[in-house]
Amino acid sequence: MEPFVTLTSKLVPLPNENVDTDQIIPAQYLKVTDKVGLGKYLFAGWRYLPDGSPNPDFVLNRPEMQGRKVLLAGNNFGSGSSREHAVWALQGWGFRAVISTRFADIFYNNALKNGLLPVVVDEETHQRLFRWVDADPNVEITIDLPNQKLCLPDGTEVTFPIDSFSKHCLLKGLDQLGYLLEHLPRVEAYETSHPPRVDTTVLLTQVPPSPAPRS
């Protein structure tokens, strides 16, 4: 995972509220078996016209938006399906951070685990950011993770919350699985005093494999 320390970028504004993960990446693109190459499906329902050509009115298709790394999203971003593909698609397009007033829980966790920083701001800052971008689409912001600060276009700063563990992982680019693996002896101890409630392996012998597909 690429470490996240500070980032200065112009913003891609998407004021829609309650953007769910079905909009971030529609289900027809979930048949993939790897994580790469999903950037082209990001917001596919809005980004492409029914004939598959880019919708010139959609923000991501505007030439000046290319290369920007921060999505300024509307309230309550990432609700709905747990698909981590949503995070992979945002990162595939080039985003490294998303700003909103609130993130759905599963999306927030998924983002942190992949090094995409969800920045939670208060309502007022959120609205000011949209006004700034409306007035000048090229304003820049800086995200300073060590100090948990968002530096706004007028030079003022606001802080944003993040738990110290996730922050540490992001700064160092650490995979959280490493942490869990370190603690496996504790898991073993837990399992000794808590025997499994079920054993599904009894099903193994009863399950015939699929017939070979006809090609």
Partner: peptide, 9 residues
């Protein structure tokens, strides 16, 4: 529900 990273965990 969990994400795919957590499925791996």
């Amino acid at each position: 529900g969990i994400g795919t990273s957590e499925v791996e965990h």
